[in-house]
Design a binder for these strands. Structure first.
Lengths: 233, 233
DNA sequence: CGTCTCGTTGACGAAGCTCAAAATAAGTGG
DNA sequence: CCACTTATTTTGAGCTTCGTCAACGAGACG
């Protein structure tokens, strides 16, 4: 895909005229990373803004005890590392390629100049940050108020919305995703995820294989996610 | 306190020259709220940006089951409701006065014009949002990785840092705060907070009364917060 | 075919939530 | 100042959810 084409898909730049996009596009460098590769680490000095072109990147925060939380998963058109690079801080989390990915990136310095030249971008940045902040706050609320099964149901529905593709059996999550990943996304353990998914499989709600999940009965998941779960006694 | 004086204390406006502050200050309206008053509700259409002049305001997110999470506590110089009012969305959470407070506020429309006139503010907004985002992400990490006692210890230390005043016995949290509040700040229940605080009191780490806590042995708290807790067997 | 990663399942325990009851503190109106 | 009301806190008992530890199975890949 062409650069200004990718920029056009990014909410942060979407509002700009095509000529400006072409102009800005020149400053971006394309690079590829294999699934599992780290793109940057928490605590690194932030020097680049990244923009996902193809594939998915996850943003992780690690704890001393070795546990990890997946804060967010970015797909095509989404940016990450931007704020830190703009402000010149350390990255607040680690970015790792979930699939093979291609990303565009610019240096913080260049990004600053771009924003300076096209101040409207600042508004877009604020808008994007506002959205992410809401999502993160919602994550906090869920962690406090809801139990694992519900969080997991919500997460699958969210993933289906983001990267779901229709297949014969239902909607397939189009991204290799381990039980461990799901656990880190929902703040639980891989065993609990495995048990829950197995139960759902028995109930005919999902089909699941190695690094692969298909939702066969979305309505069932919604019932769980929205606390309308009928008890099957 | 004078308006431009208050603006000067706000990171969002601090970088502006005094003349500009005086100019902007004219658009702000001062209002007071009693402890417990709601300033705005989640889901309200956001029409104003608020800036705390005196007192403390808490930002709360409610769940269907009646549970609540305190996302943040804002003190003098801190702004809230800003992003939503700028973007013209609904407020993502509820704001409630923790103490009697005085706040300055402007309409979203006016705020937009101000930012438009003084684009540097946009950068400050991004910086402030970045900081808050990091804090919220850290909150997520803690909820997932750490147990209640640790989270509570950290919270008390944070509060001591924000609103602590030295007294004879140690450092007093200078804000009326119930066990329920602490529970909502740390994602637990008031009973668990009560038990933990009682234990700490027996251990000589804190003194606590009704809506009142004084840290008498900060080092003990730090040991707990940093997982260096020696077992007293 | 051996190794590795990923997934499944069981058993056990513990952190912390829920429910309940009572004590304490702070008003409030007479 | 006292009786009464209300909010806050404490403490106990029981129990559920979920994490931890462990063993095993199965597919993938060189």
């Amino acid at each position: 895909m062409d650069r200004s084409e990718t920029l056009k898909r990014a909410p942060m730049f979407a509002a700009l005229p095509a000529s400006t996009l072409a102009d800005i596009g020149r400053f971006f460098i394309q690079s590829t990373h294999q699934a599992g590769d780290y793109i940057f680490f928490e605590e690194d000095i932030a020097h680049r803004l990244y923009l996902v072109q193809t594939g998915e990147v996850k943003l992780i925060k690690h704890s001393a005890g070795g546990q990890a939380v997946i804060l967010q998963v970015f797909g095509a058109g989404e940016t990450f590392g931007g704020i830190a690079s703009l402000v010149g801080q350390k990255y607040p989390a680690t970015a790792q390629a979930q699939t093979d990915v291609t990303v565009l990136s610019v240096s913080g310095e260049t990004f600053r100049q771009i924003v300076h030249r096209y101040p409207d971008i600042a508004f877009s940045i604020i808008r994007v940050m506002g959205t992410r902040m809401m999502e993160t706050q919602e994550q906090v609320r869920q962690l406090v108020a809801e139990r694992v099964e519900r969080r997991l149901a919500r997460m699958l529905l969210k993933l289906a919305d983001q990267v779901g593709v229709p297949v014969d059996e239902g909607v397939r999550i189009d991204m290799p995703i381990t039980r461990q990943d799901l656990a880190e996304m929902t703040g639980t353990t891989l065993e609990t995820v495995s048990r829950t998914v197995s139960r759902w499989r028995r109930d005919g709600i999902v089909e699941a294989g190695r690094e692969e999940i298909t939702i066969t009965h979305p309505h069932g998941l919604v019932l769980i996610a929205e606390d309308l779960e009928e008890d099957n006694s």
